[in-house]
Design a protein around this nucleic acid. Structure first.
Lengths: 347, 347
DNA sequence: ATGAAAGCGCTAACAA
DNA sequence: TTGTTAGCGCTTTCAT
């Protein structure tokens, strides 16, 4: 392994002082201006010798790591990290020369209530991004809170230091859209299977339902609610439930769905029942940015994952600058992505 | 900000030496056994004072970072990181107390041929995981190669130090499955839109097609190939292409598809053409682990993302142990996930 | 305009 | 069994 070039080596090589080399390479020429000639020689030598600064040494000296850590939620043992969110976080951090470190509870530790991810056992990050969509073990939440390291909560409603999306407003919008198309029997397909480790539901479950009800009531229409815990049903059972529901209820002409992956069974059922989509049934749903290109092209209220990520980094940077401050919550709106599955009833 | 506790503070607190504290807390009691009593006092103090070791200081001293960096491919400006892969990597690394740092080229730098992710500009990782599915800018590949840091290539075929899946064998298997069900007119839907920055196709594009052809030829059947660059078509155009193709070719009774998200248009077209699935058209596809739960439930050759991740970390650890060694490639098989969309023709 | 030197928190070789 | 000490690579204050 070719030894890594250090500042000292460059200094020796040029027969100047380490401090000088450091100042040049960090553009700290501010104090005690360094001659352009020397500066140039230093830069040249650094390039020639392939100098790469050592992040750890710098961190030990300066006291900060230039690193943000992302604590991931899990779904059935798998981490939850939509691509847009990763990109938003990454880009936002990169802009400030922070790198992103990722941690979740490894599968092997899922049942171990003692386990802490490395960055909670070790000083290595200046800030914490907590992705609290669901299923974050409570003891982790506790540890993060006690870690005294500036933290921002993604996807959860708190009095401060959080970024989340306005599910309720979006549900109102989507429902009104269907109403404006002329629908009167509009159903809502719930999918309350996103519970955290305390068995509690994610806020979006309640908020979307509330938004739907609000819009229906405002228009003087009766809510029609279909609800099953998708995770607990086989796909066939899911289909059977959906079929029964389609027959039973004097079929609605439109449907709003909590999350787009809950639609598979319903769409299959509609198919089997001989419905023509969207003519016989308009469908709108909530979904992630991936829903845009996904196989089941349904008109979607798209969660602005990238923007959530960007905002989260901004809030985090402010927290890092003023650790004791409370940053106001950032509430983001959804984007409507029309994919042609919402049309007037019978047409 | 409450000052972080350091080893020195603990030492002062107990009026013992730093070295002693360090040894206790690192179980380095091997040399010069420390009395159980002192050891216990040290541990207690550490807990009481909330001691958390400083990763950077440790790294500067020991010379290694206990960190692996993941270099991401991008798709249309979005990073490509299937969840299974992330989890496999993360779990594999966690087992050895390595943490995972992530980098891609930020959106703002996509057109900047000079840009290097932070961990290529800075010493901060002991090993590199290169996710080379596609679209990794060539200058990055070059930089990674020259970085002299042990690297493992994910999802690409190289003579050594790589982990990839056997697309060809899987295509043979899938095709034979359809043949064994009694199909004779089996089509292959290509989707050669995964090109890297050199305009070259990912190996899987060629390999899957080759596997399909091989199985068809071996059975004395004529390959039927449908090909369009999905990324370049609107969804409507995609549907039109698929409809025309369905009518034109004395319709095949079965279809194998390169990747499951390429099926949206075809399924919609089949629908519009009045086909009943799977009776009139059996469908099999390749896909990621997410395809299992995705909205379009199609029988899938599932890419073992988690296993790829696990193997990649293993190979990387060996490389790190012996940086000059060449680790043999790991070739992994796909898993067949039957979702009922492959049935005998006309039944 | 540049050098000298201290010290960040930690580990490990050497002493006692 | 514990203490002492050097030093990892870097930044920064203070001299010059």
């Amino acid at each position: 392994m070719a030894a890594k070039t250090t500042l000292t080596e460059i200094a020796r090589h040029l027969d100047v002082n380490v401090g000088t080399v450091s100042r040049v390479l960090n553009d700290k020429a501010a104090q005690g201006r360094i001659s352009d000639e020397l500066a140039e020689r230093v830069r040249r030598a650094a390039r020639k010798l392939g100098y790469v600064p050592n992040a750890s040494a710098r961190a030990t000296r300066t006291g900060h790591f230039n690193c943000a850590a992302l604590l991931l939620s899990t779904i059935a043992g798998r981490s939850y990290l939509p691509h847009g969110l990763l990109d938003g976080l990454h880009d936002g951090l990169a802009r400030h020369n922070l790198h992103l470190t990722i941690a979740k509870v490894p599968d092997s530790e899922l049942n171990n209530p003692e386990y802490l991810p490395k960055f909670l056992r070790t000083l290595m990050a200046d800030g914490l991004l907590i992705n609290y969509t669901n299923n974050l073990p409570p003891h982790l939440v506790e540890a993060a809170r006690h870690g005294r390291i500036p933290a921002v909560w993604i996807n959860t409603i708190r009095p401060a230091d959080c970024v989340y999306t306005d599910s309720r407003a979006a549900a109102v919008r989507a429902t009104e859209h269907l109403i404006n198309l002329g629908h009167r029997r509009i159903a809502y397909l719930d999918a309350g299977w996103i519970r955290d480790s305390n068995g509690e539901l994610h806020y979006s479950v309640g908020d979307r339902l509330a938004g739907y009800r609000q819009a229906m009531n405002a228009a003087g229409m009766a809510p029609i609610e279909l609800r099953y815990e998708i995770g607990k049903l086989s796909f066939n059972d899911e289909i059977q439930r959906a079929r029964a529901w389609i027959r039973q209820h004097n079929r609605p002409t439109a449907l709003l769905c909590y999350w787009h992956n809950a639609l598979a069974g319903l769409v299959r059922a509609a198919w089997l029942e001989g419905l023509r989509l969207p003519r016989d049934l308009s469908i709108a749903t909530f979904g992630g940015e991936a829903a845009r290109g996904s196989a089941l092209r349904v008109s979607t209220m798209v969660e602005p994952e990238y923007e959530v990520g960007r905002h989260a980094t901004e809030v985090l940077l402010r927290k890092m600058a003023k650790p004791r401050s409370k940053q106001p919550p950032r509430v983001l709106g959804f984007a409507w992505h029309d994919q042609g599955t919402c049309v007037p009833p019978n047409g």
